[in-house]
Amino acid sequence: MASIKIRAKQKGNITTVKCLMSHPMETGFRKNKKTGKLIPAHHIQEVTITHADKVVLSALWSGAISKNPYLSCKFSDAGKGDKVTVSWKDNKGKSNSVTAKIK
């Protein structure tokens, strides 16, 4: 199952968002050791972190991001209890989105 874990914490005016996604992040360069065939690429291409309907960070990823990717960013001007949404889309068209409250 593909899921996202999010932690969003506020300290002063700065909110730190940390998220962990579960995804195989297959580069497309790896070979299956038994058959010698390339394992097809399967990785997240786009990640967006949204707060109050505004995109704070948008990431474009290749297969060179580690398996079960971790991403963290900081932003200002948010309040406790505000919602932060993290969503991703992979090269096979799958997507996922999870919302958490800032603590």
Partner: peptide, 16 residues
């Protein structure tokens, strides 16, 4: 490996 676009209220911080 990756590229990122930051909004004006984002801090100059990134971790992955």
């Amino acid at each position: 490996t990756s590229s990122y676009q930051l909004a004006s209220n984002a801090e100059g911080y990134l971790s992955t």
